[in-house]
Design a protein around this nucleic acid. Structure first.
Lengths: 137, 137
DNA sequence: GTTATAGTTGACGTAAACGTCAGATTCGTA
DNA sequence: TACGAATCTGACGTTTACGTCAACTATAAC
């Protein structure tokens, strides 16, 4: 079955994070591994959440923001009011993500333009060098 | 002309940042306003750079990374080796930005899926409530 | 000439996100 | 049952990116 749990060491190897980071995420209530005595056992749910956490970090979100985002998943079977609130929050995040992507797209375009410019400068220099060589030859 | 300079206060109003932040960026060599005595005068170049800085921050880049990115613009008229190095660095950043955008696109898709799920739950609850009302009526 | 309004340089403080010990515990294994 | 490997809980340290004074200066307005 896939409800196999991981130790903290296995988690660290699988996701390339430190134990300290995992304990820190737990303290911030982003993860809730099962406790057997002192030891932690990470469930598939924890692993899914960690995936989202690390992705959120790559996007530059704070752990507090990531926590909010995590709540949008794992909804459970709440009240209608609760579900509507979730949906509203999700739409807010959805808008933000799309805005960010648009901005990224623009940035990529600008960088490409800049690269074209540098390439033009390079070929210009190459041509000039060739002409100089020919004149000297 | 557009080579008009801004005071620090004007910059703060225009970009919604604090003086402290602008001085900090200067200390980190991301900005280099003209000095007239003690006072700073921000050029159009500084404004362009600040735009890139703030965008970089929204993308979650550190100021050190942003500084690298800034060097890709404002290339000047360097040696061929220099230009080639710039181009290589730019390609590296370009790859990273595109990878990030792809990941963002995936994340947006997943969030949309999740929103559909919640909407389904809501309509299911609405139907159930209607049936209950009809049965009682 | 003084007063209000920016602006300046230190210098210390702070929040986030861990890193890095120290010292105790636990667990499989020889 | 002793040992090594893994894990645990504090607790203090560190880096980044500024915030927040304090004390001084310059400049325009009255």
């Amino acid at each position: 079955m896939s409800d196999q749990t991981y130790t903290i060491g296995e988690m660290c190897r699988a996701f390339d994070v430190t134990p300290r980071a995992l304990r820190f995420y737990e303290q911030k209530e982003l993860l809730k591994p099962i406790r057997q005595g002192q030891h932690r056992h990470y469930t598939p749910r924890d692993r899914a959440r960690l995936t989202l956490i690390l992705r959120g970090k790559r996007f530059g979100f704070s752990l507090a923001e990531i926590r909010e985002l995590l709540e949008l998943y794992y909804v459970g079977d709440g009240q209608v009011t609760q579900l509507n609130a979730t949906l509203q929050a999700a739409e807010k995040h959805h808008d933000e993500l799309r805005a960010r992507r648009d901005e990224l797209t623009a940035a990529i375009g600008e960088l490409e333009e800049q690269m074209r410019l540098v390439r033009t400068m390079l070929t210009a220099k190459a041509d000039k060098a060739e002409n100089t060589a020919r004149a000297a030859g």
